[in-house]
Amino acid sequence: MRTALVIGTGLIGTSAALALNARGVQVFLEDHDQAQALTAAALGAGTAEAPPGPVDLAIVAVPPAHVATALADAMRRGVARAYIDVASVKGGPRRELEAMGRDLTGYLGTHPMAGKERSGPLAATADLFEGRPWVLTPTRDGDTEVLNLALELVALCRAVPVVMDADAHDRAVALVSHTPQLLSSLVAARLKGADETAVRLCGQGIRDVTRIAASDPAMWIDILSANPGPVADVLSEIAADLDETVRSLRALESADEDKRGSGAGGIEDVLRRGNAGRERVPGKHGAAPATYEIVAVYIGDQPGELARIFADAGRAGVNIEDVRIEHATGQQAGFIQLMVEPQAVPVLTAELRERGWSIRQ
């Protein structure tokens, strides 16, 4: 791949353009909002000028509702030898293109499983896709050259290719991406009218659950409108579990010992099923999730503190597997939770204490 045209310079399009441009591909940028394309160009994603002729690959990075129209327009103009899209829904756009009578031998639907709560070119980074799955949905009538170019794109973005059927992909993302967004928003919505005293008690748990609730509603309306059926199916199953959980909790209020026992059993069932499901979520490098120990360290809110604690952990020869920061309410300080292998805990704790860090037991 020597040349590429990115149509749509939001978070995903600009991030792909940054990655390609950094690896020697000449990238052209196109957006219905010329100011956004110019912003992406200023960030080093490519040029906002029109390509002089057909490029090797056109990457359509627009909302799902506009994918088919944008692809059909690009194909009509003959802007590339091959076409892909990176929308989060795959079945619908292909069916729309088929209904338009477009020749789809030069098209392949794809979806990089990466994103942020923020959107737009200013949120883009060249490393957004590194180590992340990038779904490809080839069909029997697709051109092999298109698949090869898509695989090259995935490699240049340092992502991990995953081949799936388009409709199977849509059912999968309904479960692992679209439904979590709605559930996060539903929980966060409870905070809108909550008493200020309750909100001040927010800890890491509520922050974890509501993190993605900060996402752009307009973007998610586009996504959910393109995949409503599979998402509704998952939510229906969750609604049934919620109904049963409510009944179990009400039973725990009963004076009847048998009802309380039944209620406790219902709650235990959903918690244990949650344990089993969580264990299936891939951990580091896509392997089964490992069990790490937490070393919690008091840390001040000042420049250089994070770098200093990571450097001290490195001197101890300890690899930090994951990290979280728990902010202290109303204070310019908090705790950093360092997740490490169990056998590394004594070594890391001793090293950090020796260097003056305060460890929370």
Rank of each mutant, 00 (worst) to 15 (best):
A296T: 06
L306N: 02
G300L: 15
D312M: 05
L306V: 10
A328H: 13
E321I: 04
I309V: 11
F310T: 15
I325R: 09
T329C: 07
G300M: 14
A296M: 07
E321A: 10
D322W: 02
P303V: 09
P303C: 07
V318N: 00
A328F: 15
G317W: 03
A311L: 11
G304L: 02
R324F: 11
I309M: 08
I299H: 12
L306D: 02
I299E: 14
A296V: 06
D322N: 11
A307Q: 07
N319A: 01
I309Y: 02
D322P: 05
V297L: 03
Q302C: 04
A296S: 13
R324N: 11
A313R: 06
V323Y: 06
G317A: 00
R315V: 08
I299T: 13
R308F: 04
Q302L: 10
Y298V: 15
H327R: 12
I320H: 01
A307D: 07
R324Q: 12
V323E: 03
P303Y: 03
A313K: 07
D322C: 05
Q302I: 08
V318H: 00
N319F: 04
A296E: 10
A311F: 11
T329N: 12
I299G: 04
F310A: 15
R308W: 03
E321P: 01
V297F: 04
V318D: 00
V318S: 00
A328V: 15
I320A: 01
E321T: 02
D301W: 10
R315K: 13
A313N: 06
D322F: 02
G314E: 09
G300V: 12
A307C: 06
D312K: 09
I309A: 06
P303D: 09
R324V: 12
E305Y: 09
V297G: 02
I309H: 04
E321Q: 09
D312S: 12
I325P: 00
H327V: 07
D322Y: 01
E321W: 02
D301N: 12
E321N: 07
A313C: 10
L306S: 03
E326P: 03
T329Y: 13
R315H: 10
I320D: 03
